[in-house]
């Protein structure tokens, strides 16, 4: 698809054929590869949001973590501003790429005060010269995410889930990154708080111009915040398009069934809407079906689907789909 010469292509983050396989012990001596991510490619422009959806265990989180090299990828390449990110030069990119974690309860050290948590990235990258400069920066970040200055000396157990997530966001913003992986940042929060946090993500994007990879399983939230949406199923991408295009015109049968499961607030429309109910369970990622991974639950599956894996092709206007039948 692309190569090293795309340095001026205008993309902030490019991921090419990312693969992450974990060896899992399945027997006394036998190990099987768990293909958590199996060939995922996408590009994100500066200040843009790519939403990544899919059901539990489809590899969304692994994509985010491998992207930041918290896991060493099995295969594939990652480019940041056109330069390849490798194991050896990852440290300098830690200032550019950050992460907000899913669980606001376990992602903050209970032994540290809020000040020290937000200050940790500043300490690690030595982004201040005096103690007072450090404190000013921390207080600035706290007001940016809507925390009061007197919260600085408190421990995290004194905060609610939404406030904790704000602390996590402030920590990610401390190094002034250009790209943030948001790993289901709102799924652990109350619905009312979700809206606040999502709106804050949008405001921060407008203010600071950061790009997001927004991982979630709530399609409505993803639609609200994303410019583009990618759908994953069992470690592979099945569809990617502009947010509105994907919502209005889903092509892949998996996306169609996902969208039909979104609750509609209007009962009239909801009655007319036909739900597509998938049969069977998600196959075990240790024992993936041949060809298209979705074929065991697909209404349109043919013999071709089991023989060959469908390519991820453009169906016009950047609407990418991996399906033989659609």
């Amino acid at each position: 698809m692309s190569n090293e010469t795309n340095g001026k292509s205008g993309y902030l983050v490019e991921v090419e054929d990312l693969k992450q396989h974990f060896p899992i012990r399945t027997g006394f001596t036998k190990t099987t590869l768990l293909k958590a991510v199996d060939g995922v490619s996408f590009k994100i422009r500066p200040g843009e949001t790519l939403g990544l959806v899919g059901e539990s265990g489809c590899g969304k989180t692994t994509v985010g973590r491998t992207l930041l090299r918290l896991y060493e990828p099995t295969d594939g390449r990652i480019f940041f501003e056109g330069n390849e990110v490798t194991k050896s030069n990852m440290r300098e990119y830690r200032k550019e790429m950050q992460m907000v974690f899913q669980d606001p309860y376990s992602s903050l050290d209970p032994r540290m005060t809020v000040e020290d948590i937000i200050g940790e990235p500043l300490d690690v990258h030595k982004l201040y010269s005096t103690k007072s400069e450090r404190r000013d920066k921390i207080l600035g970040l706290m007001s940016l995410v809507g925390l009061n200055a007197e919260h600085a000396t408190r421990y995290v157990h004194e905060f609610s889930g939404g406030q904790r997530q704000r602390i996590g966001i402030a920590r990610a913003l401390a190094v002034d990154p250009k790209f943030i992986v948001c790993d289901e940042p709102v799924s652990a929060l109350d619905v009312s708080i979700q809206a606040q946090v999502v709106n804050m993500f949008e405001d921060l994007q407008k203010q600071l111009g950061v790009a997001y990879l927004f991982i979630a399983h709530d399609l409505l939230i993803v639609h609200h915040i994303s410019d583009k949406i990618a759908v994953m199923y069992l470690g592979r991408m099945v569809e990617m398009a502009d947010a509105d295009e994907l919502m209005d015109n889903p092509m892949h049968p998996y996306t169609q069934s996902l969208l039909s499961a979104v609750p509609i607030p209007d009962p009239e429309t909801a009655r007319k809407q036909k739900r597509i109910i998938l049969e069977g369970d998600v196959p075990s990622p240790l024992n993936m079906p041949s060809g298209c991974a979705f074929r065991t639950r697909c209404r349109y599956a043919t013999e071709r689907c089991s023989a060959e894996c469908p390519p991820f092709t453009d169906r016009g206007n950047g609407h990418m789909v991996a399906c033989w039948e659609k």
Binding site: R65, L68, L70, M90, R91, R94, K95, Q98, M99, F101, Q102, D103, S106, S107, L108, D109, R111, M112, E120, P121, V124, H125, G168, R171, V175
Partner: peptide, 21 residues
């Protein structure tokens, strides 16, 4: 715990992770 992962994402060296977390 995810805060260890977060510290690694920040780029903290293992020595610091052990000492402060």
């Amino acid at each position: 715990n995810e805060y260890i992962l977060a510290a690694r994402a920040i780029g903290a060296p293992s020595g610091k992770i052990i000492r402060s977390h």
